[in-house]
Amino acid sequence: MNRIDQLFASKQERILNIYCTAGFPGPDDTLPVMTALQAHGADMIELGMPFSDPLADGPVIQDSSTRALQNGMSLKKLFGQLEGFRDRIHLPVILMGYLNPILQFGVEAFLEKCAAVGVDGLILPDLPMAEYEQEYKPLFEKYGLHLILLVTPETSDERVRQIDALSRGFVYAVSSSSTTGKDKDMSAQQAYFERLKGLQLKNPVLIGFGIRDKRTFDTACAYSNGAIIGTAFIRAMEHSKDIDATVQQFIQTIR
């Protein structure tokens, strides 16, 4: 069973998924950050594959990507770092990134690598749903990898249902119409969260974008199975001197 499904089978509430950029803050920090996240109580890890032009991300995550690229990160290097990581880390791991580097790597070669090192799922914001369904779904299934799709406040009920039907693992509910890292007021989104809840989706739902502290995490958890924190965590890591301590402190403020 895919580790994402295993997690949701045993826990349905207050799932904490933390996003970090691979090769950030330092080139060799990918594994230490993941290890600390596991040690201090994260439930799931979303690992960003740095890209030069991350359209769906705000300045904080883009800057972390730029820094990672300056640190020499690439997909090849990332797979090198992930070699054998399953000896140490049992949390579900999702790779998040943009299509172009994957197209250059070769989609099947990429998926094969993901499966070989022990990745569980992928978030690829610029892969259109129709193209996934027509071209790539059988490959994802062949390698046992979940593609997690996004919904937003502007997504119609009908389209939410299509997305839910195609998404595996969970549905990623973007909290507001925004790029990552915008502090839009979450209370204004309650009608949207209620609507999602009312749709009784087959997948679990995690809410992301704008979750930054205990209050916003609690709000998200009141309407869904948990939340994803990215920008706030990257901010905390930017100037970290001691990765383990920073991660521990950060998670304490959320839980």
């Binding site: 769906a56 996004l150 937003t152 502007e154 997305i163």
Partner: peptide
């Protein structure tokens, strides 16, 4: 060609 857009731009 095509439209390789994130869901946020779909509408």
């Amino acid at each position: 060609g095509g439209a390789y857009i994130p869901e946020m731009l779909y509408p």
